[in-house]
Simulated assay, not measured.
Amino acid sequence: MPSHAATFSPAGWTETAPGAWTKDLLRSPGDSFTLVRLAAGAVLPEPGDRLLVLEGAIAHHRAGAYVAPDGALSSTDGCLALSISGERLGDPADDVFSPAGWRNSSPGQWYRLLLDAAFDETFDERLVGLSYFEPGSFSPRHPHPTAHRFLFLDGEADDEVVFPDGTRTTARRARGDFVDYPVQVEHQTFSRSGCLILFLHEPVR
């Protein structure tokens, strides 16, 4: 199970071009997730299929932009971004962190999908989106018949997973943590302080 804690920290980066650093979180036949950090004036030659700007700006895209790059991108002031490659990643958007487009899924919990898809209790299709937990909110244990990948963008939560063999793990997740549950699991989350998560469900083939 690939898991990376505190991925926004200074450790573990590879300089791939002058002033451009990357950190691979996951590379698989279906998806790849790579963090990108650019210094002021640096160029990202291969941005991936989608780029979510987390801090700063790249080209004319500021934090919250979900970008479909068509070539190299440069950053005037520097930025931190997540590069995602794979299928069905959704349409670009100017600001996915804005209040528009969010839906209430249960008390204290909100989600925003980044692609046009149904979202129901089966959790059995490919989905990519954002999930927000208000402080004190709780997601009861539920099955995930898909691989479940997520990156904590802000806040923290207690995360419990039960694997098919009955093995149970619990961990405190915080900003910058990336986790990939590549098999079918049952999952529940509780956030005392509130949190914002980017998630992707990938059907297990």
Rank of each mutant, 00 (worst) to 15 (best):
H60M: 06
I84A: 01
D31A: 12
S191Q: 06
S131G: 11
R103K: 14
F119W: 13
A117S: 14
L127C: 08
L114C: 10
P107S: 12
L82D: 09
D120C: 07
T76C: 01
P47D: 04
T14N: 05
A57L: 03
S83D: 01
V67L: 01
Q109M: 15
S139I: 12
Q109H: 02
C195M: 15
E134K: 10
Q184C: 11
H142L: 09
R126Q: 14
R205P: 15
A117Q: 10
S131R: 11
A20F: 00
H60N: 07
A93E: 13
D120M: 05
H60G: 08
T14Y: 00
D31Y: 00
I84H: 01
T169K: 01
R37P: 00
S74D: 11
D177Q: 05
L44D: 10
V179T: 13
E121Y: 01
W13L: 02
A117N: 05
R62L: 08
W13T: 04
S98R: 05
G176K: 07
G136E: 12
P145A: 10
D165M: 02
A68D: 09
T16K: 01
L200R: 14
L130A: 11
G155V: 04
L54S: 06
R62Y: 07
I197Y: 01
P145F: 09
L114T: 13
T169D: 03
P99C: 04
D31V: 14
V162M: 12
E186A: 11
R205K: 12
S28R: 13
Y66G: 04
P45H: 11
L82P: 09
H201C: 08
P182L: 03
P164S: 08
R173I: 14
A72I: 04
G64A: 06
R50M: 07
A65Y: 03
A93M: 03
D120G: 15
A171E: 13
W102H: 06
T122D: 11
P2A: 12
R175I: 11
A100K: 06
A63L: 03
Y181G: 02
H4Y: 08
A72Y: 01
A117V: 12
G19A: 04
L200S: 09
F152Y: 14
T7L: 05
G12N: 07
F178W: 06
P92V: 03
G176M: 08
T146M: 09
A100W: 00
P18H: 04
Y132F: 12
H201R: 12
D70W: 04
G19K: 02
S193D: 13
S32H: 05
G136W: 08
A42D: 06
A20K: 00
G41Y: 08
A100L: 07
D154N: 12
G41T: 10
A6Q: 14
A63F: 05
T122N: 07
F97V: 06
R149W: 10
H4I: 14
G64D: 04
F123A: 11
K23Y: 04
E15G: 00
D77L: 05
A11D: 15
A93H: 10
G78E: 09
A17S: 08
H144R: 11
S75M: 08
P10T: 05
T22Q: 14
D77Y: 02
L127G: 06
L25Q: 09
D177C: 08
H187K: 03
S85Q: 06
T14P: 00
F133M: 09
E186W: 10
G41S: 10
A65S: 15
R192E: 13
R62S: 13
P69M: 03
E87K: 12
V179S: 05
D70V: 12
R173Y: 05
G86F: 09
G166D: 03
T189Q: 14
R27W: 09
